[in-house]
Amino acid sequence: MAIQLKRIYESKSENDGKRILVDRIWPRGISKEEAGLDEWLKEAAPSPELRKWFEHDPDRFKEFKERYEKELDNDEEKQKAVEKVRSFMKDGKVTLLYAAKDQKHNHAVVLKDYLS
């Protein structure tokens, strides 16, 4: 039941397992073929309001994490997406893909912790 994170711009690897994009918006500059996705779960991403509030500001990350986890707990669409990822995890390795430049302060980091 391994789960890892990777920027979507990094090369696809045979060690990725199931590749799942967890961004609401398609990443710039990459084609669907290059992405090599198994699934695009837009519903797993933070709400547009929360994403805009956060603005990838590391100083807001702690509060962002709390707000995003609350969304994951309370939003039916997000819960369905989380359950889908968990079902993939039962079958083997899962790689959550995201486009953010900051590899420590982004929603995929929160989602990985939430799923663990």
Rank of each mutant, 00 (worst) to 15 (best):
I25V: 14
D57E: 13
R28W: 11
F54N: 00
E71D: 04
T95I: 05
R60H: 09
E69C: 14
Q79R: 13
K62T: 05
E77Q: 14
A44Q: 03
K18S: 12
N15F: 14
E49L: 10
P27W: 05
E83R: 12
H105W: 12
K32A: 06
I8M: 03
F61L: 03
R7I: 06
A45N: 01
S47Y: 04
L97P: 00
E33D: 14
N106W: 02
K93R: 13
K80Q: 12
L5N: 07
L37S: 01
R19A: 01
L41E: 06
A44M: 03
E10M: 11
M89L: 13
L41G: 02
M89R: 11
K104H: 14
D38S: 06
W40H: 11
I8Y: 02
N74D: 14
D75L: 12
E39H: 15
D57V: 04
F61H: 03
W26Q: 05
K62W: 10
I25G: 12
M1T: 11
G17L: 06
L115R: 05
R28C: 10
D102P: 03
A2W: 11
L5W: 08
D91P: 08
M89T: 05
I8G: 03
A45R: 00
Q103L: 12
K101C: 08
M89N: 07
G29N: 10
A99M: 07
D73V: 10
G29D: 07
F54D: 01
K90S: 13
K42D: 06
L97I: 01
L21D: 01
D75E: 13
F88Q: 11
A2E: 15
A108R: 06
Q103S: 13
R86K: 15
W40Q: 07
A35E: 01
W40D: 03
R86T: 04
E39F: 15
S116A: 15
E66C: 02
W53V: 03
I30G: 00
K101E: 14
Q79K: 11
A44L: 07
A100S: 13
K62A: 08
V85K: 03
F54K: 00
K52R: 14
E39V: 12
